[in-house]
């Protein structure tokens, strides 16, 4: 059923990501995906959007970045545009004004909110996130332009099938809810938490696996972590998941913790990740950061540039 499946990334698309985003190093790509997805998540909360809308927005975000380069647009703009688009076709749309307000607020924060950073003592100065009418118009037009880009890149495939409802069904099928409520609730919550966390995965698990597999893996992990025994035998095959896929997903989901830890060490205490910040980081790494202004460098000029650099390096 088309409702239950998602379009997936093809291996060649995943492979092409390196060249698509060149010369952005892979770890920075990961950071961009992770932090932008978190930004969407934060905006979704502030906009009081149901989590399924926010989750779908993040899936669309990753889908879009499979087709267009990460540096083509400001990250927060892409995030805002996907969120707007997703909400627009849902039952809980949000106005562009609300969206731009929320993003302006988030961008104004000196430190991106995170569970580990202490909450600021004083509320931020309202003037720091006031969006004037002209600024709003500019912002809006920018977002609408990106919306068009996203639709075009996705060929209007805006339907996203989420594993969350499936996971609940699966838990019921596995009779988890016949356990004591305290236990079953913990397992269910943990399952959903895994699914939501997987949205942030730089491995783009939602683009490489169908919802049944994601749901199954989340249940598997949650049950293990909560010490709940699941049926003997390969119960996951009932849900159309093969052992290898399950194993891969479990590793993928578990690895997120270490990844986040590393990201935090690298970016802790900074505001929203922007192209500016990424370019700065690239500068530190000694990478050319001329590219990425939304203008793609074609192969020829890239070659010429590399050649110039080589020559320059030799002659000095």
């Amino acid at each position: 059923m088309a409702h239950l499946t998602n379009p997936l990334a093809t291996p060649s698309q995943l492979y092409a990501l390196t060249t698509l985003n060149s010369p952005l190093p892979i770890d920075l790509q990961h950071s961009i995906r992770f932090y932008t997805a978190r930004l969407t998540q934060a905006a979704g909360l502030l906009l009081r959007l149901p989590q399924d809308i926010t989750a779908q927005a993040n899936v669309l975000l990753y889908r879009y970045w499979l087709v267009d380069p990460l540096l083509a647009w400001e990250f927060s703009d892409v995030s805002a545009a996907t969120l707007y688009l997703t909400a627009k076709i849902s039952a809980s749309p949000r106005t562009l004004r609300s969206i731009t307000n929320v993003y302006t607020y988030l961008l104004s924060l000196p430190t991106f909110p995170s569970p580990t950073t202490p909450a600021p003592t004083a509320p931020p100065d309202p003037e720091s996130y006031y969006l004037s009418e002209t600024a709003y118009t500019t912002y809006r037009n920018r977002l609408l332009n990106i919306e068009g880009q996203i639709l075009n890149a996705l060929s209007f495939t805006t339907h996203v099938s989420l594993p969350h409802p499936l996971a609940i069904t699966y838990l019921q099928t596995l009779s988890i809810f016949s356990l004591p409520p305290a236990v079953s609730t913990r397992v269910a919550k943990r399952t959903i938490a895994h699914l939501n966390t997987a949205l942030l995965s730089p491995q783009m698990l939602y683009l490489t696996h169908q919802p049944p597999a994601l749901a199954t893996a989340a249940i598997y992990l949650a049950a293990r972590e909560e010490g709940v025994k699941l049926p003997d035998g390969e119960w996951w095959t009932v849900f159309d998941v093969e052992r290898e896929e399950l194993g891969f997903l479990c590793v993928g989901m578990r690895s997120l913790e270490g990844f986040v830890e590393e990201e935090r060490r690298r970016w802790e205490g900074r505001g929203v990740l922007t192209r500016e910040g990424v370019r700065g980081e690239m500068g530190k790494l000694g990478l050319n950061n001329e590219v990425g202004n939304g203008v793609e460098e074609d192969e020829e000029s890239q070659m010429a540039r590399l050649l110039d650099e080589k020559v320059g390096a030799v002659s000095t």
Binding site: A2, H3, L85, K88, E147, G148, L151, F156, T158, H159
Partner: peptide, 19 residues
Amino acid sequence: EKDGFPITALREIKLLKLL
């Protein structure tokens, strides 16, 4: 469009793609 891509079109496209 003030609201970007027309929502009715989006909705119809989304529906049609599922059918």
